[in-house]
Simulated assay, not measured.
Amino acid sequence: MFHKIDYPFLIAAFLSFVASVSLWFLVSHDLGLFVGLWVPSILALWVGVRVVLLASGVTTEGGRTDL
């Protein structure tokens, strides 16, 4: 289901979400909102990287596409 290229993006998005919620409740609502905007940006970058890699035909042994 997930490939090794996916994990850094998913971890970064999750950590950004946790940081956003923490900042919202502990520091400032404005900082929480700012960091919260990173989550969809990271996920959009992840989709872009996957599309580029699939379009370039990244393959492993056996001829199947594997990221």
Rank of each mutant, 00 (worst) to 15 (best):
F17I: 01
S56W: 10
L67S: 05
L43N: 10
W46I: 02
W24D: 04
V21Y: 08
A12M: 11
L53D: 02
G63N: 14
I11V: 13
E61A: 05
D6W: 02
I11C: 12
A44S: 05
T65Y: 15
S41V: 05
Y7A: 04
L54K: 07
R64Q: 07
V18C: 08
A19G: 11
L37V: 12
P8W: 03
G57M: 13
W38E: 07
S22T: 15
I42Y: 03
V49D: 01
G36P: 08
V21C: 10
S28T: 06
F17G: 11
K4S: 10
G62N: 13
I11P: 00
L26S: 15
G62V: 09
L26E: 15
T59G: 03
K4V: 13
K4Q: 06
P8C: 06
W46L: 06
H3G: 14
S22Q: 09
V35T: 14
E61R: 00
G36F: 07
Y7H: 09
F17Q: 10
G63D: 09
G57S: 07
A13I: 02
A44Y: 01
L31A: 13
V35H: 03
L31M: 12
L67D: 01
V18K: 10
V52G: 02
K4R: 10
G36S: 12
F25T: 12
L53S: 05
A44L: 06
I11E: 09
L53K: 09
R50L: 13
T60F: 05
P8Q: 02
V27M: 09
A44G: 04
A13L: 08
G57L: 12
V27W: 05
L53W: 11
G48C: 04
L37E: 13
A12V: 03
G48V: 03
L10E: 00
F9Y: 08
G62E: 13
V39I: 11
W24F: 14
P40K: 02
S28P: 00
T60W: 09
S41P: 03
L23A: 14
A12Y: 06
G32F: 01
F25P: 06
F17N: 07
P8A: 02
S28E: 14
L54S: 03
W38F: 08
R64F: 12
A44E: 01
T65G: 06
A13M: 03
D6Y: 01
P40L: 01
L67T: 07
T59M: 15
F14H: 04
W38L: 15
L31S: 02
W46Y: 00
G48W: 01
D30K: 10
V47M: 04
V35D: 00
A44V: 08
F2E: 10
S20F: 12
F14G: 10
T65M: 15
G32S: 11
P8N: 06
S22E: 13
F9T: 02
K4D: 00
I5R: 08
A13N: 01
F9H: 01
V21W: 07
S22R: 14
H29N: 10
V39N: 03
S56A: 11
S56R: 15
F34R: 15
P8I: 00
F34N: 03
R64P: 00
V27A: 09
L37C: 12
S22V: 15
L33G: 15
L31D: 06
H3S: 14
L53Q: 08
F14M: 05
A12E: 07
G32D: 04
H29V: 15
W38P: 00
F17E: 06
I42N: 03
P8D: 00
A55N: 09
R50S: 10
S22G: 12
L23K: 05
V51R: 09
